[in-house]
Design a protein around this nucleic acid. Structure first.
Length: 285
DNA sequence: CTCGCCATGCCCTGACAAGC
DNA sequence: GCTTGTCAGGGCATGGCGAG
């Protein structure tokens, strides 16, 4: 037989400890009991209960409180619930009326603006994805095919013609032409120097023992390629070269004819001096 | 606690025009 | 020839919330 505690305080303490120790089972018991009571009720009774304003208010408050929200979120996060929810949504999203509603929503100005904003943020990522996509051969082929359609081509040409008429385009085009011209000039000058070096180097190697072209005059030895030229040792006439047969034409001829004798490398100064005085007035040779 | 309806956010895509 | 801007739209997961 269990005797009552003499000290009520002690009894409270003991029952508290007992509850803490068996909390799990106790809660489960409570839950089952509540369910049993709930099952006893008829659907009408349940409905009546839920319709009560104070009940509604209580539920609303609970579901909107942080605690209630968290509880609900956790419930949804359970793997099986998550999956259920996903499947249910899928089914829901495919309903014709839902699709119609969604489409209508996308037409609203505020929604359009919102989506536009989002797309601006998405642009860099989109660009990356597109680059990757475009590198694929099938995408390239598709694009080509599209661009070749007569109506597409016509549209493109019309657009180009339209743009070509604008003053901005004309200005831009002029500067583009100018840029092209300068680039071309640089390229030609570079090519000229390359050929010249190729034509002159063997002569300097043979006559001056230098790996780079230099003036044959021993006291000069000018190496700046732009100051150097080819000198006909015994005169142009002997080699059948006219006065105009010079520059790039002459260099190319030398290379083509395998560096013939009778030529040497000189700087313009020494060459001029030799032409007039038969020897260099500065260096004396 | 559980369920279902609904709106919404995020990400992605296709197509075309324009630009470089 | 290739890239970028823009529009229009789709797919789908997730959050909110009322009701049971």
């Amino acid at each position: 037989m269990i005797l009552p505690y003499k000290d009520p305080e002690k009894q409270r303490q003991a029952s508290k400890e007992y509850y803490q120790k068996h909390r799990k089972e106790r809660l489960e018991h409570n839950r089952l009991y509540a369910k049993k009571q709930y099952d006893k009720k008829t659907p009408a009774e349940i409905q009546e209960y839920n319709q009560r304003p104070e009940v509604k208010e209580r539920k609303r408050k609970d579901s909107q409180s942080p605690k209630g929200k968290l509880r609900f979120r956790l419930y949804r996060l359970r793997p099986e619930k998550k999956e259920e929810h996903r499947i249910e949504s899928q089914r829901y999203n495919l309903k014709p009326e839902v699709i119609t509603r969604r489409k209508a929503r996308l037409k609203k100005p505020d929604i359009i603006a919102k989506r536009k904003m989002w797309q601006v943020g998405y642009r860099p990522r989109r660009s990356e994805l597109r680059k990757k996509l475009y590198r694929k051969p099938e995408a390239k082929a598709k694009r080509k095919e599209h661009d070749r359609k007569p109506e597409v081509r016509a549209r493109q040409l019309a657009g180009m013609r339209r743009r070509n008429q604008t003053p901005e385009y004309k200005t831009k085009n002029r500067s583009a032409a100018l840029r092209f011209y300068h680039r071309q000039k640089e390229r030609i000058a570079q090519e000229h120097d390359e050929v010249k070096i190729e034509a002159l180097t063997p002569y300097s190697k043979k006559m001056s023992n230098s790996n780079v072209p230099c003036c044959v005059c021993v006291k000069c030895r000018e190496k700046e390629i732009k100051f150097l030229t080819i000198d006909h040792i015994h005169g142009r006439r002997l080699m059948g070269h006219s006065h105009s047969f010079s520059g790039l034409r002459l260099y190319k001829w030398i290379i083509k004819n395998n560096f013939p004798d009778g030529l040497q490398v000189m700087c313009h100064n020494c060459n001029k001096a030799k032409g007039q005085a038969k020897s260099c007035p500065v260096h004396g040779e």
